[in-house]
């Protein structure tokens, strides 16, 4: 890959929803609220461009805020996995 190429902020694109890393406390609160193990959340690969962009590591939980045709805006969570 061309290293000189400027890094693009993928979140500038309209179709890429906002991704946030959850802090440990927030993550625990979420898991407690849903009464689940982190593996029971939907997964996201650590190699996912958005996950790479926010520096997510396996075991983290990513909060995604995106547009929804039914609810206007909606929050979903992803558990970061290896591979």
């Amino acid at each position: 890959m061309d290293k000189k190429r400027k890094k693009i902020d993928i979140f500038c694109h309209e179709l890429v929803p906002k991704h946030e890393l959850l802090s440990k406390e927030e993550a625990e609160k979420l898991l407690k609220k849903l009464n689940i193990y982190p593996e029971q959340l939907p997964w996201i690969k650590k190699s996912d461009p958005a996950a790479v962009a926010i520096g997510a590591k396996p075991g983290d939980i990513v909060k995604i805020i995106r547009k929804s045709p039914t609810a206007g805006e909606t929050v979903v969570y992803r558990y970061v996995i290896d591979k």
């Binding site: 849903l34 689940i36 929804s68 609810a71 909606t74 979903v76």
Partner: peptide
């Protein structure tokens, strides 16, 4: 069936 989450709220709303 194994209580993995598909949606946080049904239909997002």
């Amino acid at each position: 069936a194994s209580s993995r989450i598909i949606q946080i709220i049904y239909g997002e709303d």
